[in-house]
Design a binder for these strands. Structure first.
Lengths: 208, 208
DNA sequence: GCGCAACTGTACCACAAGTCAAGTTGGCGG
DNA sequence: CCGCCAACTTGACTTGTGGTACAGTTGCGC
């Protein structure tokens, strides 16, 4: 009766996605109930079904939003890194440093990766969603592979290494780092791992 | 009426744990129903509750079994590695190589890590279970930290590195590698990552 | 022929996803 | 200033399933 207005639609939807993401990362998708979400947002069940056809559509919107946000974050990070250095290697090193610092600045540590969460509940989701997840990981691989090719052109690797595997190592370390951080309740683990990878890349292309 | 016998208890329990683990890794714990497990094993619901007081007890037994198995596997791997080399570094390198090969030999790839799965559904579990999970990760850290101390004593690191972080890197790479392997449906990713870490450790302690 | 391990049978209740129909509110475009 | 539409609300209802309780049963081993 008070705060009803035709333009609040997208906002309510966004709040639904926000609380849903938190709940999914804490309990998993199956244990996240619609009742719980609408209670947190302050709408009724029919209100939920106005925004999403069903739980599956919520899952997809959730993942898409997460992937888009991450992509934007990475774009921004390495854009800033490259702003400071013409050399792609040093741009990468700066980007990784900023990444690590950003993760360390999160007060509660990284809240979790939806890609990883969905991966461990893959049977709950449609083919479409699983494909989306796969595309996200392959996107990271392509992004960093391109970067490493650029770096290798200027700094021939001192150590023989598969650049696709090295590119995957970014996703691997982030997802693994988040897990170990969460399990041992030490938010420093993820940034430490990012810095370890950074050092590895430096030693591969610079030799020290 | 046919196959009832007082000694089949532990066997039935083990079968329950086996199918439960598969289901949990595929769908998550919340979406794994008791009905489904008993159907797969061929007992009634009451039979389940004879073996476990409730779902929580199943969760705990499941995790404990998983952790014990992993520990045994690692013990065996590096025992065999050390058998072939007196030098702890080379024992480690051989152990990692065997680890990578073992992962590559799994026909369907690694089925998943329960520690990671539980981590992404932590709110479903009791304090005890969460503590167990934490202990498992800290156990891996201690194991590899001890190993790296031994290695460092004989081979002073050529690159400055935090040995605790390096020890964590094993857990991180395994958990992250499993996720990326699963998501992109390429079982080679995990072994590749293990080999990358192996190379990193070699370059840290040997310089090449 | 007794006891105990290893179950079975049956019943219950909460809650979750989803459906459906009908009504309400408030801003905006004409 | 009127009417339409987005963005909801109300409320009732179905259908399924999930975890749990508890009393009874079976058959091997002693």
């Amino acid at each position: 009766m008070s705060n009803l207005s035709p333009k609040r639609g997208p906002e309510t939807r966004a709040r639904l996605l926000e609380v849903a993401e938190q709940s999914v990362l804490a309990k998993g998708f199956a244990a996240t109930s619609i009742d719980e979400l609408i209670a947190a947002v302050g709408i009724t069940k029919s209100g939920f079904f106005y925004h999403f056809k069903g739980k599956g559509e919520l899952a997809e919107a959730l993942l898409q939003r997460y992937i888009d946000n991450e992509e934007e974050l990475l774009d921004e990070l390495f854009r800033r890194g490259d702003e400071l250095h013409e050399d792609p290697l040093h741009g990468f090193l700066v980007g990784m440093k900023m990444f690590a610092e950003m993760m360390l600045d999160l007060p509660e540590g990284h809240p979790g990766c939806l890609v990883a969460s969905y991966c461990y509940q893959e049977n709950l989701f449609s083919k479409d969603i699983r494909a989306l997840n796969k595309e996200a990981v392959l996107g990271w691989r392509a992004r960093f592979r391109t970067r490493f090719d650029l770096i290798a052109a200027r700094h021939p690797p001192k150590i023989d290494v598969d650049l696709d595997a090295l590119a995957d190592m970014v996703s691997v370390l982030v997802d693994g780092g988040i897990i170990v951080s969460k399990v041992v309740h030490d938010k420093r683990v993820l940034p430490q791992q990012i810095m370890l990878l950074r050092d590895y890349v430096r030693v591969i292309f610079l030799g020290t």
